[in-house]
Amino acid sequence: MQREIKHTFYFNQTPQQVWDYLTKPELMEQWLMPSDFKPEVGHHFRFTNPNNTFVVCEVLEVKPFTNLSYVWKNDWAVTKTPYTSNVSWTLTPVEHGTELLLVHSGFELFKNLTDHNNGWMFLCNKLGELLKAANK
């Protein structure tokens, strides 16, 4: 079972151009969601979901044009699936553009499972067996 989300995207633009879209609220809103983001470590901010609920965030790391990460969480007040997680962006200059790596990880509810002797691994293996058996 998958426990983190990874996407690598290539852009024809420079890291500086891509960075602006990751860090300027008026540009972030065009492709992601409205927010009161500021590129300052420790800054608390919120993304507004289309249904007017919030993703509650805190900036963890800012290395201009290279690294950006923040806490991304929902709580019981908003959803029946509360979780804490991390969103991290890594920009790497490549020929003719930028490689952007997104890692959305550290989902607390999965971490809890792995804390106990890698219990999640057992469960995933077991699940794999069940799926195989079901397909026979």
């Binding site: 996407h7 995207f9 633009q13 891509v18 997104l102």
Partner: peptide
């Protein structure tokens, strides 16, 4: 979330292009 990010990033690509 996997789909969420994929669609958002595609959108970002289009906007930049």
């Amino acid at each position: 979330f996997d789909k969420f990010w994929q669609s958002k990033l595609k959108k970002l690509q289009m906007i930049l292009d």
